[in-house]
Amino acid sequence: MENLKYRFDNGKPTQGVTAIVGVLGSGNLEVLVEPAALGGACEIEVKTAANGFDRIWQAVMKDFFARHRVGDIRISVNDAGATPAIVSLRLDQAIETYIAQGKIKT
């Protein structure tokens, strides 16, 4: 088990409603997106069963933030050995769900 943490500053504060996407099954992951007063930052915490991939995670998360530039958001990931492509896909789905649900609510 490995616990990895990332923080990206200067994102665009993004409104939404807590969203969960994906399943913690072999080769898959679950992503939880929650609102958080982080001064525009986006914090990501990853718990993964596969050790030794922190540099890949770092790159995937950096790409994610570059794509969305979301802020005031906390993302929590439980991973069971998903590939970087699956991780990116789930992160995109999660943030999109978070934003879409927020629009329905308001």
Binding site: M1, I20, E30, A80
Partner: peptide
């Protein structure tokens, strides 16, 4: 008790297994 409540299994960490949020 949705995922954000993080009521995860207290027994899996000792077995090096990931615990789902729900």
């Amino acid at each position: 008790l949705p995922a954000a409540d993080r009521l995860t299994s207290p027994h899996l960490a000792a077995l090096e297994q990931s615990a789902a949020f729900d």
